[in-house]
Computed example of a mutant assay.
Amino acid sequence: MDLKTSVDEVLRKIGRNMLLFQQLEGLLKFTLSGNKLSGVSSQLERKQAKHVASTQKQTLGILVGQYVEEILGPETDDEGPDLDKITEPHFSYKFRLGHNEAFYEEIKTWLAQLVDDRNELVHHLLPQLDTTSAASCEETGQKLDIQADTIRQAIRNMQSIAKAMTETKKEVVALLQSLEGKSMLFPDEQPKTSALNK
C-alpha cells in the first residue's frame, strides 16, 4: 500500500472509531436518562426533563461512572420520600441489573479502559501519528480495527440493556393502566359490585 493510501485509510479508521464512541455515548445518555424516576405526580414531568437535560451534558467518563454505579452496581438503600409530607400520589421507578461481584468488577474495568482508549484516540493519537511512514500508518490502522471491535461489542451490550429497559417500562405502564394496576394504586376508588350483579 502506498503512503497516501495508508494515510487516508488510517484517518478513515480514526473517524470511524470516533463515530463509534459517539454512538456508545448516545446509548449511555439514553439509558441513563430513563433508568430512574421518583417524585410526586405534579413534579414528575419537570424532574424528568431536568434529569434528561443534565445527562445530555455529561462526558463519556462521567456517563460510564454513572452507568456502572446506577445500573450495574450493588443495590443501595435509597431514602424514600417522607410519607408524612406527601399530599399527592408519589411514583418511583428504578431500572437496575443484578450481577455477581466478579462480573461487576470485570465490566467496570472494561468500561474504564474504553474511556481511556477514547481519550487517547481524541487527544493523543493524531499528534503521535507518523504520516511519513506507510508501515506506521498500517500498524496504527490494525490497532484501530481491534479498538473498533471492542467499541462495537460495548454498543451491542448497551443496545440490549436499553431494549430491556424500554420493554420493562412498557410492562410497568401497561400494568398501571390495567384494571389490576388501578386497583392496586387506588383500592378505595374501585367500583363496588352491584347487588344486581350478584
Rank of each mutant, 00 (worst) to 15 (best):
residue 101 E to W: 11
residue 4 K to A: 14
residue 93 Y to K: 05
residue 59 T to V: 04
residue 69 E to K: 13
residue 14 I to C: 12
residue 40 V to T: 07
residue 40 V to Y: 04
residue 158 M to P: 03
residue 56 Q to A: 13
residue 15 G to I: 14
residue 176 L to C: 07
residue 43 Q to E: 08
residue 13 K to R: 15
residue 162 A to D: 00
residue 19 L to E: 10
residue 196 L to G: 12
residue 51 H to I: 09
residue 162 A to M: 05
residue 43 Q to F: 06
residue 87 T to D: 06
residue 27 L to D: 01
residue 44 L to V: 13
residue 85 K to M: 10
residue 4 K to I: 07
residue 42 S to P: 05
residue 119 N to P: 14
residue 67 Y to A: 02
residue 53 A to S: 09
residue 166 T to N: 14
residue 162 A to H: 00
residue 167 E to V: 11
residue 24 L to E: 00
residue 40 V to F: 10
residue 98 G to I: 12
residue 122 V to F: 05
residue 109 T to E: 06
residue 103 F to S: 06
residue 147 Q to C: 07
residue 152 R to N: 13
residue 141 G to K: 04
residue 71 I to E: 04
residue 177 Q to G: 10
residue 122 V to M: 02
residue 148 A to H: 01
residue 148 A to I: 07
residue 77 D to S: 11
residue 98 G to V: 11
residue 19 L to H: 15
residue 115 V to F: 09
residue 105 E to P: 09
residue 73 G to C: 08
residue 17 N to C: 05
residue 98 G to T: 14
residue 40 V to I: 11
residue 156 R to D: 03
residue 126 L to W: 05
residue 2 D to P: 13
residue 151 I to R: 01
residue 147 Q to I: 10
residue 115 V to K: 00
residue 94 K to N: 06
residue 111 L to Y: 01
residue 155 I to S: 02
residue 66 Q to I: 13
residue 17 N to V: 11
residue 130 D to T: 06
residue 68 V to R: 01
residue 72 L to Q: 02
residue 150 T to A: 08
residue 98 G to R: 09
residue 157 N to E: 02
residue 48 Q to V: 11
residue 192 K to D: 10
